[in-house]
Design a protein around this nucleic acid. Sequence first.
DNA 1: ACAAAAGTGTTGTGTTTACACCCATGT
DNA 2: ACATGGGTGTAAACACAACACTTTTGT
Lengths: 229, 229
Amino acid sequence: MPFKNTFFKSAFSVDNVIFGLDDSKLKVLLIRRKGEPFKGEWALPGDLVHPKENLRDAPKRVLKELTGLVDVYLEQVHTFGKVDRHPVGRVVTVAYYSLVNIHKVKPRAASFASEVEWFPVFDLDSLPFDHLEILHKCTSRLQKSVRTMPIGFELLPEKFTLSDVQDLYEAVLNKKLDKRNFRKKFLSMGILVDVKEYQTGVAHRPAKLFRFETETYDEFKAKGFNFEI
Amino acid sequence: MPFKNTFFKSAFSVDNVIFGLDDSKLKVLLIRRKGEPFKGEWALPGDLVHPKENLRDAPKRVLKELTGLVDVYLEQVHTFGKVDRHPVGRVVTVAYYSLVNIHKVKPRAASFASEVEWFPVFDLDSLPFDHLEILHKCTSRLQKSVRTMPIGFELLPEKFTLSDVQDLYEAVLNKKLDKRNFRKKFLSMGILVDVKEYQTGVAHRPAKLFRFETETYDEFKAKGFNFEI
DNA sequence: ACAAAAGTGTTGTGTTTACACCCATGT
DNA sequence: ACATGGGTGTAAACACAACACTTTTGT
C-alpha cells in the first residue's frame, strides 16, 4: 500500500511517466489506484522512496514491478513539492519518465495498482493529484529530448523501417513531418544500419529494415545533436 | 543551524547555485559552513525545506537570507538522492540555480553560514558532499539555457554594451566567440533597445549602451530561441 | 488493375562561418 | 602618437523547406 495514512508527517515519493508507442500514438501507462487517496482512479504509478534506497532506484523498482523490465531508458524530469499537493500529508515527489516498447511489455497489477492500462497521452485531460502537470512536464521534456538526442528508439522493435521512425517522431511531437526531409536528415546522422532485409507480407512495396548503430548512438547521446525537423 | 544531528531519519533540503559575473568570469556564491558536517568548509548554500513551505520557496528563502534579493531568476535543475550523499542521515536535495547581478549584491553571513564569497566556477575542483556534481549539473544547465532562452541578462547592469553581453556569453560558455557574428545575431533578435547613450570615461571609443526590450524578451522566454553561437 | 505505402532529387531561401580593417576616445 | 577596445560587410558553405512522381508488393 502506498501510504500509511496515519502518523506520517513528510515523505518523498517518485512518479513514473512510462511512455509507449502504439497504433502510431504516444501512450502512457496508468494504474488504477488500490489505496487511498483517490482509490480506484486512474493515476500515474509511483511509490514512496524506501529509507535505504537510492532515489533513482525507486522508479526502477516501480517500473520492474509493473512491467518486468529492468534496463529501461529513465530520465529524471522535475520535483514537485507544493505543500498541499497530496491530501494526506507532505509528499515531495520526483518525476521520471521512461520509454518502453509497448509490445514487449505485458503490464501487470502491482502492490499499489489493481489494474494497469495504456492511455493516449494527448487525450488525457484530468488526473488526480498534480499528475496532469507531471505528465505535461514529462511530455514536453520528451519532445525536447527527441530533438536533441537519439532517444525514442527504445519505443521501437529491434528491426524497424524508416517509416516506423517517422511515425514515432510524429507521435511524440504530435505533428506531421515531411517524408523526404525526414529520411534525408535521419539517414545522414549515421546511427542507422541497413540490415539488408525487407519487410514481408505487407500489401505494398516492402520497406528496408534498419537497426541502430550503438556506437554512434552513444556518441550522439553524449554530445547531443540538432534535430530541428 | 542546518541540521539537528540527532534523531533525524530523513529530510529534504535545497541547494542553491547562485551565479554571478565578475571580471568577465562566471562565479558562484559559496558559504563557509557554520554547522556540522563539514563545518568551516566552503560549500553550496542550502537548507532544509520547512514542513509548511512550498518546495520552491525554500531556495527563495535561502537566497533572500544570503543576498537580500527577492525577485531573482531561479530554476530547478535536478534532485540528488543517493542514500549516502549526506553523512548524517538521509537527505534528498533539490538543486536550483539563480542568476544575480554580482555588483548589486552585498552577500552577508546567514544562519547557516559564517562567511560568504564568490568563487570562479571553472576553477573549483572540490567541494563537500556531492556539491561538485551539483555545481556541474547546474553549470551545464545554464550553458544550455543561455543558448535557448534570453537569460543571463540578470547578470548584467541595467544599461550595458554589446561587448558586455558577449563577455557574459563567453564567461558562461567558457569560450571565445566571433565578435561580428555575435553582434549580428544578437541585434537581429530584437530584444535589445538602443538607449542613445554612450559609455563615458573609457580610454577608447565609447560603446553604445543598450537595455532589454522586456516584451520581446518575455516572448522569447516563453517560446525559446536558437542561439547556437 | 488497383490500392498502399516505399522510395527518391532539386531548387530556392535563409543561416552560419570565417575573416581584417578603420574609428573614437584617453593618456 | 599610441594604445585600447568599438564598430562594421562580404562571400562561401551549409542547412532547411517545399514539393510530385515512380516502384514494388498483395489482393
